[in-house]
């Protein structure tokens, strides 16, 4: 019955592959498909948050901070609910990280505030005396790249069908609209900030990196 298979090495290999992979296919794939769907209520990042995510990547926060709370009591006590894969559905790429020189940041928005981040980025030792984190004062003067963030949002909307501009999603709009919304969002952040230069910059229409970064960190919940 299967003698022809024995004479056809290619199809024989295919058959062997299916037999060996079978358990994996039925055990892994359905779970994987289920778990990678966005969790309920998850919204794509706003343009300002994406710009903050770019700052996070650019200054390599990733190499000292993870964004992945593992299901262990010691971790959930410190950081909150363990992470679910569906929470990263709109992270392209996800920023799990694998090094914890500093603490995990996946839910930092739950227990730190805008003004704390402002103090901390300006001088980490002013709030955490033993901190070895460097100060990031250039975030207060560098202007965030809103244009690239917008381009990124448009790209994931077009290529991966990320739910921008749909019911229950995040509004993206045209470039002009997006600029205006990012600025409004930035003003909400600076309302809780004290640095005069940053406030003035936002008033005049430029968004410093610190504002975008704080918007992103506050979003991590």
């Amino acid at each position: 019955m299967f003698h022809w298979l024995e004479k056809n090495p290619f199809f024989f290999s295919v058959g062997v592959f299916i037999v060996i992979a079978f358990a994996g296919i039925i055990e892994i794939l359905p779970n994987f498909a289920e778990a990678s769907r966005p969790v309920k209520g998850l919204k794509p990042y706003t343009v300002l948050q994406l710009a903050g995510k770019e700052v996070y990547k650019k200054d390599n926060c990733l190499s000292c901070h993870s964004q992945m709370i593992r299901p262990f009591k010691s971790e959930t006590d410190r950081y909150g609910q363990y992470s679910l894969s569906g929470e990263y559905a709109y992270d392209r790429p996800f920023l799990w990280g694998s090094k914890r020189t500093g603490p995990d940041l996946h839910r930092v928005g739950n227990y730190r505030t805008t003004d704390w981040h402002e103090n901390h980025m300006w001088d980490p030792k002013s709030v955490v005396p033993d901190s070895i984190m460097p100060a990031y004062k250039h975030h207060f003067t560098n202007i965030a790249d809103i244009e690239t963030a917008y381009a990124e949002a448009v790209t994931v909307k077009t290529v991966f069908n990320t739910p921008y501009d749909v019911e229950g999603g995040t509004k993206l709009g045209t470039w002009e609209e997006a600029q205006k919304m990012a600025l409004e969002e930035a003003k909400l952040v600076t309302a809780d900030m004290k640095n005069k230069d940053v406030k003035d910059a936002v008033e005049s229409g430029n968004i410093p990196e610190i504002v975008a970064l704080i918007a992103y960190l506050n979003r991590l919940k």
């Binding site: 410190r78 227990y111 505030t113 103090n119 709030v127 955490v128």
Partner: peptide, 18 residues
């Protein structure tokens, strides 16, 4: 020291008004 000190300071003095 774990949960509150990052904002309120290790001695609870609020880090000079922060």
């Amino acid at each position: 020291l774990v949960k509150c000190a990052p904002c309120h300071g290790e001695t609870g003095d609020g880090l000079s008004g922060k």
